[in-house]
């Protein structure tokens, strides 16, 4: 986990379910409103899990991109 002034990079590539959502939950615990979390993953299950997580927590998914097997999810923390 790499954190620079309000932006946290969470690299969960190579980690299968539930690695990415575990890493996201840890980053969320350390975040504050206004922060941005960028999650990298290779496990396709991450998309459904992050959608469910955002719906539950009320946070905003800014974008989901997939290229070359890498899934990048940008999340803005709007609720803590």
């Amino acid at each position: 986990m790499n954190q620079t002034s309000g932006r946290t990079l969470v690299d969960s590539r190579g980690s299968s379910c539930p690695g990415p959502i575990t890493d996201l939950a840890i980053a969320y615990r350390r975040s504050k409103v206004g922060d941005v979390i960028e999650l990298w993953a290779t496990d396709p299950g991450v998309k459904a899990d992050v959608n469910a997580w955002a719906a539950k927590t009320g946070n905003e998914i800014v974008s989901v991109d997939e290229a070359g097997g890498k899934i990048t999810v940008i999340i803005r923390i709007t609720k803590r």
């Binding site: 539930p18 575990t22 469910a52 997580w53």
Partner: peptide
């Protein structure tokens, strides 16, 4: 549980 489901792995 902090996970989306009772056991984390589907």
């Amino acid at each position: 549980t902090p996970y989306p489901r009772p056991y984390s792995a589907e």
